[in-house]
Design a protein around this nucleic acid. Structure first.
Lengths: 112, 112
DNA sequence: TACCGATATGTTCGACCGTACATATCGAGG
DNA sequence: CCTCGATATGTACGGTCGAACATATCGGTA
């Protein structure tokens, strides 16, 4: 038997979901591409889905995450707030540490 | 903003779900009570749900988890195999370490 | 001022999942 | 040999969630 240990880590505020791994990937893409549209495409989501995800994210987090603009030739765009960037950094660090813990320890356990 | 970090840990084999926290609680209860019926009640599940959960668990894990008996005045019962007990122990240890990691680190991160 | 590309929303349909309900089976003990 | 309590399964219903489709709006720029 080859057992694998898997895990998910996500953020909540007041018991309400803010974001998980997918949200992180989405925000990363937004940060790089400056657009929800393009970011959604990059991570394989529909614009509708990404938009809904971000909407509830901003509602539940008490912090401004996105700065959006309408119109213009480019149609508008979306950038991240400094707080959002810090959130990304922190989440990734924690994620990395959790993964390391699991990998290091699960090697010892679960041998059959 | 009061952010909380949450996480789930579960076991897979071959990419297929074996069990998570709820399954652990269920197996614990079975170990103590000697019956799926009673264990399910204890953890607030219907017998049907517990049975289905255990079924796929045993299908996906390559290891015998349960020893069941039919009939008799007691109607039968279910006990855990030694492997199942080890699995429980290992999972709980890992879980504890993951939680500790998250708690210790998330204190430092996510301050706004 | 008409156009274009992105944000902003509502809505409907189908898949998936747990819940509820119903039933069959087994076997020691009275 | 009949009863009782637990295992063993099938099925139908309802809610949730993402996917797909349809619009509305905004505002630099040509």
């Amino acid at each position: 038997m080859q057992l694998e240990v898997r895990s998910k880590t996500w953020l909540e505020a007041d018991g309400k979901f803010i974001m998980g791994e997918h949200g992180i990937a989405l925000l990363d893409a937004i940060d790089e591409l400056g657009s929800i549209q393009h970011a959604a495409r990059r991570v394989g989501w529909s614009y509708r889905r990404a938009w809904g995800y971000l909407k509830t994210m901003e509602q539940h987090a008490g912090v401004p995450i996105l700065v959006t603009s309408h119109g213009g030739t480019a149609g508008g765009g979306t950038r991240l707030t400094p707080q959002a960037r810090k959130l990304l950094r922190d989440y990734k660090r924690l994620q990395k540490m959790v993964r390391a813990t699991i990998q290091r320890k699960s090697r010892l356990l679960f041998s059959y």
